[in-house]
Design a protein around this nucleic acid. Sequence first.
RNA 1: GGAGCUAUGGCAGAGUGGUAAUGCAGCGGACUCGAAAUCCGCCGAGCCGUCUUAGCGGCGGUGCGCGGGUUCAAAUCCCGCUGGCUCCUCCA
Length: 431
Amino acid sequence: MLDMKYLRQNPAEAAQRLADRGVDAGQVTALLNADEARRAAIQEVETLKAQRNEVTDKIAFAKRNKEDASEAIAEMQAVGARIKELDAKQAELDAQVADIAAHLPNMAHESVPVGADEEANVEQRQWEPADYQGRPAAHTQAPAWLKPHFEIGENLGILDFERGAKVSGSRFLYYVGDGARLERAVYNFMLDQHAEEGYVEMITPIVVNNEAMYGTGQYPKFEDDAYRVEGLDQTYIPTAEVPLTNYYREEIIDADKLPISVTAISPSFRKEAGSAGKDTRGLIRLHQFNKVEMVKFAKPEQSYAELEKMTANAENILQKLGLPYHVIALSTGDMGFSAAKTYDLEVWLPAENKYREISSVSNTESFQARRARIQYRDDNGKLQFVHTLNGSGLAVGRTVAAILENYQNEDGSVTIPEVLRPYFGKAKIEA
RNA sequence: GGAGCUAUGGCAGAGUGGUAAUGCAGCGGACUCGAAAUCCGCCGAGCCGUCUUAGCGGCGGUGCGCGGGUUCAAAUCCCGCUGGCUCCUCCA
């Protein structure tokens, strides 16, 4: 949710900043017009209400003195009826303003590259492990024996997509044996890392109510991609960002506790509406996948430093796993709905010979906090909206895919990265 | 699934139709070497609108879990819903 006062006072600037996010200027005009009509209606009805309050006081006074007040009462009956009409009209205008506003995305931070799509994204840095441990190096011509992760997984009997499709549908799978163990090793490693970095681990509900989905910005605009529970005011989460961020919904957080960092592993459910035909094989695009999520609540003056820290926390996982990656700053046109600034981490998948997104780290500033009403008291005791941040740390399935591809050997076996061995129990997966 | 109770500020808590008490906490002061205790004072309700501003503030509206209704007037009466607690039933 954007700050209505800012929009009113800086309509041209706001329209430009939203145009950078792909919003048609007509929407801003429509919002401001609706807002003006709403305020006019408020003034009209409030004048009448003030009059009613005044007369009502007189009636109360007259009754106490046993005087006759029937004339004033009759007059107020008519005023009351008129107030009821105007209240209804105002409620309609309120809903109109709220509806338009709820569909407007956040505005980008000034440091975000302006552009229409991913072409305008800007690479920040690349990282590769110094020691390849005999693995195929990133950016080099892949040897002929190199296989995509889903073939490796099927050959080793650790990923079963066919039975996933049989039992659930396309884009579902079973992890079997060492595959299941590897998935579990990866997210346990991630959670332990984040715990060391000061994140408080949580196990959250994975079904949330619609108010929560609205709070983080998934609703009302992106309902089509969500798994709703039939007949109930509930949805299977598309990311643990939703329950983690909504933890403090409608609360005032003690300022001394900020910044607060939390993390959780959870399954994430996405219908992937509009992705038909894309990434149909493997672990890249599923209807259900595990993800370790990081969320922070910060004061406005802290939030961009925390964004850099959170990005470093996600990078740390990839570095410890020895997976090549790069960091890109998303352009205004490529960022998600709620974000003011986003860094994507993309991991190197040698079989595809390209980088694929494995983490997205965003500062939403006060956009989500305004929707979810998460506040703190500043030094003057005034209520302020916190800034909320979220980032994957990391998508677990995609990490498993990256490990299988980057650590595969010519004989079809896969070496387990050193840091995972305490969790996995052995050094290699073999047929 | 059934029954009863319940929801008021950061917290506790009064208020059964006519201006939402009070206490704790918080802030300032006195006392003290300092602190605690005590005493005095202040502040303390979110949201919307508007004026003045640009440090604040004034005025109006609304606001007592949420949504409706009755009434000149609702925290208070009526209806519906949600959350919490207790009991019954069931259950990993």
